[in-house]
Design a protein around this nucleic acid. Structure first.
Length: 579
RNA sequence: CGGGGAGUGGCGCAGUUGGUAGCGUGCCUGGUUUGGGACCAGGAGGCCGGGGGUUCAAGUCCCCCCUCCCCGACCA
């Protein structure tokens, strides 16, 4: 295919379509063509081998599942619109599996009943369905995609930790074998439930996940899960007492700071005021799962926004909904634009729960709202003049924020989430009644882990990681073929025989060979196609054949060398072995 | 779900004041060519996203719907 498909923006997607690996078949659904399917199988096989190595056993569930187990776990409703639901002819509800915690839990419940059967790890490589609001980047985010999902079952937390570590280590090996760079970041568990979880990200500009990495130590976390360290307390003995000022015409924090810097009675002697000296109080509503609405005020330094993603991750399962004018009307003591700490808190008149960003150090002084229109208060000291009901870490994260582990600078990166490992704990085992008898004959609820790995997404990520301007560049372990033989130049018996013999010999020795024997196609076209398809070695059988040589090219480095026909097989084999 | 863009042969696109659809590429046939996207000749292929309307006449004008892409929201 000579022209790029116009509806593909992401390079790997464009190339995979153009080179004939995949083809869109439905919104968010892709057909694997022969080249693509070979790549997919290679990736799946590497995953399979590493899962088997760590002692997991492969099974396979149907994709179409009954409603009841998901009803029991709450996910029939919790998954919301992202769940594909359907009914059979008798109007019985089914779903297309988005992930299989419930089914695995029930399987183990059916099959096992003793602690002697544990630990146990089961996995499958299977098509998953999620009705994504916005599929993107071809294989990167589909509504139908292939995932390896595994589940561990242990009698206690120690066992879970071991199973978790085993999976984590297996994932490290899989990434290494796939040749895919990765970062392991702390993450929030989200709708999956459970406690500890880590994501395996492929760092990449087009990624949809944002994470931070420490420039010094190995701390790394999804921005939702970042925890900033609390600064040391500040001695406020010499801080002036709090004072209220009229601050007309200060609709934004910047205008407020400008006013303070321009008025002699408000200026600081040592430096200019900045937006970071102000305390911004944001009020939202939380909708709890039981339907209860609760107002929540959050205090952050004025130079930062509240990151809604981080907030939602923190307050989950409650949902964040806006605190709009009707809510302000119902709370006359909250003066929109001038909300100050002294109106907030469970102990205060409004009774609105008030949580502070951890950066608001004990003893620090602030310019903030005075709870009256047109008035702000300065020198308001945390701990001396106001207190909050607790701490919440939801301010936006920035480059150069400090690492919670070593206090060095953090940097922000983007990545594609390929794997996610969870310590689920007993959530699913409890609601589905999975327990085994322990040594004392007593029923113990099993504790579980869940481990996802996006297989189709990994294919796209590898393509993204390795491609260049002119095409794909697969590593040997993944490539559809090891060698792409191009017959170039005027067709004659020597060239045809040399190419065919070479292909047959390599094939018989276990090398995967693609032979381009199209007639009447000019050499330039064949070269371009070979480069686009991206197998790691390209062998050109052409005019050199008359002199007893062929050209061997390395697609990755672009280096080419002439090799005697007699040595070609050995040369290619060693190239396959070393790269 | 909000904002923006776009739907015309496989792919990339053009189509004027409304007049019955064209170009490039790919495909088929024959011939010439053969180391970096060759050339000549002949050919096949289109419910112009869908429905309704205006009109003698609609790819083009009007209304409704659908789909795709990008940004956001959401999401292992």
């Amino acid at each position: 295919m000579r022209d790029n498909p116009v509806d593909a923006e992401v390079p790997s997607h464009r190339l995979l379509v153009r080179a004939g690996y995949i083809r869109r078949a439905a919104p968010g659904g892709y057909t694997w063509l022969p080249l693509g399917w070979r790549v997919y199988q290679h990736v799946a096989e590497i995953i399979r081998q590493e899962m088997d190595n760590m002692g997991a056993q492969e099974v396979n569930f149907p994709a179409m599942l009954p409603r009841e187990p998901y009803e029991a776990s709450g996910r029939w409703t919790d998954y919301g619109d992202n769940l594909f639901r359907l009914q059979d002819r008798r109007k019985v509800d089914f779903l297309l599996g988005p992930t299989h915690e419930e089914m695995f839990t029930l399987l183990v419940k059916d099959l096992y009943s003793s602690y002697k059967d544990l630990p146990l790890s089961l996995y499958q490589i299977q098509t998953k369905f999620r009705d994504e609001a916005r599929p993107r980047g071809g294989l990167l985010r589909g509504r139908e995609f292939s995932m390896k999902d595994s589940y561990s079952f242990d009698i206690d937390d120690e066992g879970l930790q071991q199973s978790y570590d085993a999976h984590r280590n297996a994932y490290v090996r899989i990434f290494e074998r796939l040749g895919l760079p990765f970062a392991i970041v702390s993450a929030m568990s989200g709708a999956m439930g459970g406690s500890k979880s880590e994501e395996f990200l492929f760092p990449c500009e087009i990624g949809e996940d944002t994470f931070v990495q420490c420039t010094k130590c190995d701390y790394s976390a999804n921005t939702e899960a970042v925890r900033v360290g609390a600064p040391a307390a500040i001695d406020s003995k010499s801080t002036p007492r709090a004072q209220v000022f009229d601050t007309p015409a200060t609709p934004t924090i910047q205008t407020l700071v400008d006013l303070f810097n321009s008025r002699a009675d408000l200026q600081r002697k040592d430096r200019q005021w900045t937006t970071a000296d102000t305390l911004k109080n944001v009020v939202v509503n939380l909708r709890h799962p039981d339907g209860r609405i609760e107002a929540l005020a959050i205090g952050v330094p004025g130079d930062r926004e509240v990151d809604m993603k981080r907030l939602e991750a923190q307050v989950s399962p409650a949902e964040v909904v806006p605190f709009d004018d009707t809510h302000f009307a119902a709370q006359p003591k909250l003066v929109k634009g001038y909300i100050g700490p002294n109106a907030l808190g469970l102990a205060h008149s409004t009774g609105v729960r008030y949580l502070l960003d951890p950066r608001i150090a004990d003893g620090s002084e602030w310019i903030t709202g005075a709870n009256a229109a047109g008035k702000h208060v300065a020198h308001l000291v945390h701990g001396r003049d106001f207190t909050a009901d607790g701490v919440i870490d939801v301010a936006e994260v920035r480059d150069d924020d400090t690492c919670p582990s070593c206090a060095s600078a953090l940097i922000i990166k983007r990545g594609i989430e390929i794997g996610h490992v969870f310590q689920l704990g007993q959530k699913y085992a409890e609601v589905l009644g999975l327990s085994v008898l322990d040594k004392n004959g007593k029923a113990q609820t099993v504790t579980m882990g869940s481990y996802g790995f996006g297989v189709s997404r990994a294919v796209a990520a590898i393509a993204e990681a390795t491609c260049d301007d002119i095409g794909l560049r697969w590593p040997h372990a993944i490539a559809p073929f090891n060698v792409h033989i191009v017959m170039a130049g005027k067709e004659d018996a020597l060239i045809t025989d040399t190419a065919n013999n070479l292909a047959q010999t390599l094939d018989s020795q276990g090398i995967r060979v693609l032979l381009d024997d199209r007639v009447g196609v000019s050499p330039g076209v064949k070269f371009k196609d070979a480069e686009l398809i991206g197998n790691p070695i390209i062998v050109v059988v052409g005019r050199g054949a008359a002199n007893g040589v062929v050209e061997v090219r390395d697609r990755l480095t672009g280096l080419a060398s002439e090799v005697a026909i007699a040595d070609a097989v050995a040369h290619v084999k060693s190239a396959c072995a070393t790269s």
